[in-house]
């Protein structure tokens, strides 16, 4: 079960890495906001929960989240068989993995530069 979850998280990571750019902002604090904003909203869309999109920043996260959720649903048929609890667990795993790959485990020495 754990292996299956890990494998599914890796499939989602692979899609993001090959097709998206939002996860690679230049500073750690931006990457944290991007990962949190977009992946939380993607989870809400997949779980058919309400999504905040009133402010410009929320809206720009939502835009990426809509496209990501659509791509996940289109490519990974196993997603349709998951209930909301399982989707939340999956997306939590995805968020942790993305944070590791792009922030906490990243070898990019510029992430902590205090200036743009």
């Amino acid at each position: 079960m754990e292996d299956m979850m890990k494998d599914r998280v890796e499939q989602l990571v692979d899609y993001i890495m090959k097709n998206c750019l939002w996860q690679f902002h230049s500073r750690a604090w931006d990457r944290e906001k991007q990962n949190e904003g977009i992946l939380t909203k993607t989870m809400q869309i997949l779980c058919e929960e309400p999504v905040e999109k009133e402010t410009p920043m929320d809206k720009v996260y939502w835009v990426d989240a809509v496209c990501l959720a659509d791509a996940f649903k289109k490519r990974y048929s196993w997603l349709a068989a998951l209930d909301k609890g399982e989707i939340k667990l999956l997306m939590q795993g995805l968020k942790e993995r993305m944070d590791y790959l792009t922030i906490t485990g990243s070898l990019n020495a510029e992430l902590t530069d205090p200036h743009y």
């Binding site: 070898l107 990019n108 510029e110």
Partner: peptide, 8 residues
Amino acid sequence: GHQGDMEK
């Protein structure tokens, strides 16, 4: 490029 470009 910077390391960020290589990441992408």
